[in-house]
Design a protein around this nucleic acid. Structure first.
Length: 197
DNA sequence: AGTGCGATTGACT
DNA sequence: GTCAATCGCACTA
């Protein structure tokens, strides 16, 4: 059974939140049924981080990053892939946690249909892929993920395994900061093997 | 008003 | 392993 995370239990520090979210569950309620997956990989985009979209202050796009922790920031990257982030820190501070990969739990058939593949391993391995699998798009931008709705964060009795730490993937600025968290040995990680050890 | 680019993916060699 | 697709946005003028 999966229960919704409350805002109170979310760490107020971005990197701590990124680590906290490992092993938690993303739940998506669609008209066709529930889709869920366990978070196995996250990245922190901390305050003052040159790689963060919020680095140059609030803009129309990054406004959700400045919401109180636990809200969704969804944006399109490379013109092709939607990305799901969880806002962190207090209201007015721009920061967030990128959800990079999920281990599929419920709604496998729906995920397969959305992704156009039946390979379990590839359903939600990567930030763009998981959004496609869960049909997360601009409609979810700014959504409160600690509230009842079509998309929320939950927990069950699962205990994550050993958590690894590495540099973040695919960025050019502040590329050497160790702000990526992942479940060691999970087959559902994105990124090169060297980063997943 | 014009322009360069990115927290990626999937197709192809 | 390499490489093009694709577009909203932030930056410059």
């Amino acid at each position: 059974m999966t229960t919704r995370l409350t805002r109170d239990e979310l760490p107020t520090d971005t990197a701590a939140l990124a680590r906290f979210l490992i092993g938690k569950v993303v739940v998506r309620e669609t008209p066709e049924g529930v889709i869920s997956g366990r978070i196995v990989e996250t990245e922190a985009y901390v305050p003052g981080d040159a790689a963060s979209h919020a680095f140059r202050g609030m803009t129309p796009r990054t406004r959700p990053m400045f919401l109180e922790r636990g809200h969704a920031y969804v944006y399109l990257n490379y013109g092709t892939s939607w990305m799901l982030n969880v806002s962190s820190e207090a209201a007015g501070i721009g920061a967030g946690v990128l959800i990079r990969a999920l281990e599929p739990l419920e709604g496998l058939a729906l995920m397969q249909a959305h992704r156009g593949t039946d390979k379990l391993r590839d359903l939600a391995r990567g930030p763009g892929r998981l959004c496609k699998a869960l049909q997360i798009g601009p409609w979810a931008d700014g959504l409160d993920l600690c509230a009842e709705g079509l998309l929320w964060l939950g927990r069950d009795d699962h205990e994550p395994g050993e958590i690894g730490l590495s540099v973040r993937i695919g960025i050019t600025k502040a590329a050497d900061l160790p702000l990526r968290f992942y479940v060691r040995g999970s087959p559902f990680l994105s990124g090169a093997r060297a980063l997943n050890v």
